[in-house]
Design a protein around this nucleic acid. Structure first.
Lengths: 364, 364
DNA sequence: CTGTTAGCGCCTTCAG
DNA sequence: CTGAAGGCGCTAACAG
């Protein structure tokens, strides 16, 4: 299998390599006739330029790197859809690295990306203490970087985030207005920016309702799985007065559901529940889950646009290019005030987006 | 920001470029002393070899390409986890391309990958008629290729699949044994290998129960979304005798749930439901969904292993390296025989994996 | 043990 | 309008 490169084409056409190259790159000073000849043969032989040679020569890889904590997660997979959408239109390739919320893996990925392998990087932080230092490498090498959702502070870098504080505030207030007296907050242990913001929003909403730190019930667990479910169960046993849960991430909504079921606590009568989530399935649970839903796809697009602008202009995507998008609070049966109706599932069929029950909360 | 390359290191160390290169590559014939000196400076300056130059020279990119239909899909995202797991251990990078079940996009991705950008390709077919021809390009260029789950026939290429026929057969029989008289099959329109196999399994199970083609109720819709829900509703209205649904893909299970709810058909009393699915959430629905669950993570690992073996040996991963893994049929409330109990949710808390109710079906 | 040389495939001056 | 020549950064022969 002999390779199809410029030399091969040139020989078959009795032209020089340079001419063939220019013809294919649609250079000014090549006759239409030879352009056509060259292109015809190139197409026929399925010529594709060697990407590494081209990258080496032009010092541009037409590739971006994406570093995300997880991929089995509706939020991040939607973000990736948005990124891929823009990248494809820009004729860019997408390298993907998963950190599983492990700072070591994140650092390793960043190290690999700091070598000129990619023209830009999109990253959602694993939340390690060493994160900022490691990520700074990219900035120092002049590789455009945009952070999304889970960001690191103290870097002059564009961040695509959502209004976590306001949304968490609204979600907590929503529970209180639905009649909850004691609202617990379940979040992830660690240094994630989004969790810190959501916790702030939770506390602020409590304060506004005249509930001080002593009234707050906060539980930080580690990731999804049975441990967090057990932790929530323990919390509910310890604090039988808890009648509302605000979960900071999707996986904790699931654990909360399961914990309530095991303890025989009925949602929304005994306990009301709301959570950040982008899953299309959680609104189908019984009762349907009220959610704060982030504009994940658009976040991916926005982040990608920032990085491509930086690549095009040759200037880094600085903090002044940051963008904060609005999340949507969708009210469903899991936070319904008052006693549960006869049929618990009648909220289900209203679609997520244009739901009559969907109310976008204004900033507090 | 001047680049840190071999030349820069060589100048600072008063060595030749070649020596530095060999020192860093741990070549035999370099003194320990200079190796140490070189490495120390390299580490200090954060030297990382230019990947494109290296790829060009060694004709190896340390990158694999993955082409998948979707990423917002628990099956494919788990497969990707498996692939990434192996790739990281092999110090390989992962390029990802989404086809959204569009043959054009698949062909475009394959074209891009056929240029030597990657050392191997993992692909799950979009199911286009032009698919096999387009994919054959890779084989002809000598780029190792492994197909997984949704495969193309007629290629001498390793395929990682599951026992779709047997699982579909078992799922259908499961419905019949639970008391269903008229089992409908909902599947995706198109040429997907897995759907064809699952349909075959469905028909075979019907036949064994003495039900001929006239008794089959088959509905092929296009992808997720409201259209398929409407189609299922229409089917249920047209055929009020349908008392069981076997959904070939996860999204159709959701649509079926919603259709039943809108029509007031109670699961599992009026209609029993089973579906292929890897979602951790569907078992939490009310009633909990019975599923055929594929070993997605292991499929990703197996596919990646095949491609790396091919890369290492320089020989293509031929059809004789194919592997068929077993799926698991997990019985839950949505296929419970007899009338529904007082509390509908008591199956929920048994985890998916080591569930008492989980029965792995033998081949028929 | 180290240096010199050549070339991977492509693009881009500079000549003609 | 086309050809010749050099070099992107790295590795692998071949010398010394």
């Amino acid at each position: 299998m002999k390779p199809v490169n410029l030399k091969a084409l040139a020989q078959q056409l009795n032209l020089s390599i340079a001419t063939v190259s220019r013809a294919l790159n649609d250079s000014y000073d090549i006759s239409q006739a030879t352009k056509a000849r060259v292109r015809q043969l190139a197409a026929q032989l399925h010529y594709v330029p060697n990407p590494h040679a081209r990258s080496l020569r032009r010092n541009r890889s037409n590739t971006i790197g994406v570093v995300v904590p997880e991929i089995t997660n509706s939020f991040f997979s939607l973000v990736l859809n948005g990124i891929e959408d823009v990248a494809r239109q820009q004729h860019y390739h997408v390298l993907i690295y998963l950190t599983h919320d492990d700072g070591q893996r994140e650092a390793a990925a960043v190290e690999l990306l700091a070598s000129g392998r990619v023209d830009g990087v999109l990253l959602s932080a694993a939340g390690a203490a060493t994160g900022p230092a490691s990520v700074r490498q990219l900035v120092e090498r002049g590789i455009p970087l945009v952070l999304f959702d889970r960001v690191y502070a103290g870097l002059d870098v564009a961040c695509i985030t959502t209004d976590d504080y306001a949304s968490a505030h609204a979600a907590t207030r929503h529970l209180l207005q639905a009649g909850c007296r004691t609202v617990a907050h379940c979040t992830l242990a660690g240094q994630l920016s989004v969790c810190a913001e959501r916790q702030r929003g939770y506390r602020a909403a409590l304060l506004e309702a005249g509930l001080g730190p002593a009234q707050a019930v906060e539980l930080a667990t580690s990731g999804p799985g049975p441990e967090s479910q057990a932790a929530i169960e323990a919390m509910l046993r310890r604090r039988p007065d808890v009648d509302g849960i605000f979960a900071a991430v999707e996986s904790l909504a699931l654990s909360s559901y399961q914990a309530c079921q095991r303890l025989g606590r009925v949602i929304p009568t005994d306990i009301k529940l709301i959570s950040f989530s982008n899953s299309p399935v959680l609104p189908l649970l019984t009762p349907a889950l009220s959610t704060v839903t982030q504009p994940a796809f658009r976040m991916g697009q926005a982040a990608a646009e920032r990085v491509f602008r930086a690549i095009a202009t040759g200037r880094p995507a600085r903090a002044d290019q940051s963008l904060e998008l609005r999340s949507e609070l969708v009210d469903r049966a899991s936070t319904r005030p008052g006693p549960p109706p006869g049929r618990v599932n009648d909220y289900v069929n209203k679609p997520l987006t244009n739901s009559v029950n969907s109310l976008v909360m204004a900033r507090p």
